[in-house]
């Protein structure tokens, strides 16, 4: 054992952290998010365990996964071509940027269907939880989560194109940034004042509030669904415009070839 060799290899990694914001984020990001989410869950539970806690928790977990997978269906599929150095083959083909995005959206739906089938079946077999008890509202709730996942996925993809594989960590972590303010496992009322205001502009926060309303009161959450859909239309439009603008910038800066090689 030579200390100099151990330090040399340690130094190799420390150089990375010195220059890479995404890698530095990795060190702080996940622990901070865990602390925030589970902290709010604890505050919620100290108020008294709700009667439908198991239903609320498992339902929330399945629905959150829909958002997460829908985002990953786009950004990880894009990364697959970056990792296999296939991106240039794709972008020198006649496939247009719009067709490329449409294909990623379609792919995310296929992946989502497979994942959801497994999750829903397992929840039923292991915990006797039937997500379909949510009834008809389940459809607009799920659709809103898918569209929000798409918006995040499209923006993530654009950022990776722009900042290269350094930004790859966003594909795994960016959706989780929205988890504390989405009030997945606790109601929005648990959040402190300023985060409540932030949550109002997050479509998934309205979806999870709506889900709790359906489970607890059996009511159709019209207001929450209207807000979620309105915000999603705005964010999806913004993400597509951002992608289109970013694609032009990436081509202007010659970055497409760099991320693809």
């Amino acid at each position: 054992m030579k200390l100099s060799r151990i330090f040399a290899y340690t130094e190799r990694h420390l150089y990375l952290y010195k220059r890479s914001l995404p890698r530095l984020m990795e060190v702080f990001y996940w622990p901070v998010l865990d602390l925030v989410v589970w902290g709010f869950v604890s505050i919620y539970l100290t108020r008294g365990t709700p009667r439908d806690f198991i239903t609320l928790f498992i339902g929330a977990l399945i629905l959150w996964d829909i958002l997460f997978r829908s985002q990953q269906g786009i950004s990880v599929s894009f990364l697959e071509d970056v990792w296999s150095r296939n991106l240039l083959n794709i972008f020198v083909s006649p496939l247009s940027p719009a067709e490329y995005i449409a294909s990623l959206l379609f792919l995310s739906v296929i992946k989502l269907l497979l994942t959801s089938t497994v999750m829903v079946t397992l929840a039923y077999v292991l915990y006797s939880f039937d997500i379909f008890l949510l009834g008809f509202p389940l459809i607009p709730l799920v659709l809103n989560l898918i569209v929000m996942g798409w918006s995040i996925g499209i923006i993530t993809t654009a950022l990776i194109m722009r900042f290269g594989q350094e930004a790859e960590v966003l594909a795994w972590g960016i959706a989780l940034l929205f988890q504390p303010v989405s009030a997945v496992f606790y109601p929005v009322s648990v959040l402190p004042g300023f985060l409540k205001q932030v949550a109002f502009f997050i479509p998934s926060a309205h979806v999870f509030e709506g889900m709790r309303q359906v489970i607890s009161k059996g009511a159709f959450p019209v207001e929450d669904l209207v807000w979620a859909a309105g915000l999603n239309i705005a964010y999806m439009t913004a993400s597509l415009l951002f992608y289109g603008w970013n694609f032009k910038v990436v081509k202007k800066k010659g970055l497409l070839a760099k991320v693809g090689e």
């Binding site: 150095r85 240039l88 006649p94």
Partner: peptide, 20 residues
Amino acid sequence: NREEILASVNFSSSYISLPY
């Protein structure tokens, strides 16, 4: 005329690959 042109050209490089 990007799409029309790219349909009739192609590219290969030793620096790119294919899905493994």
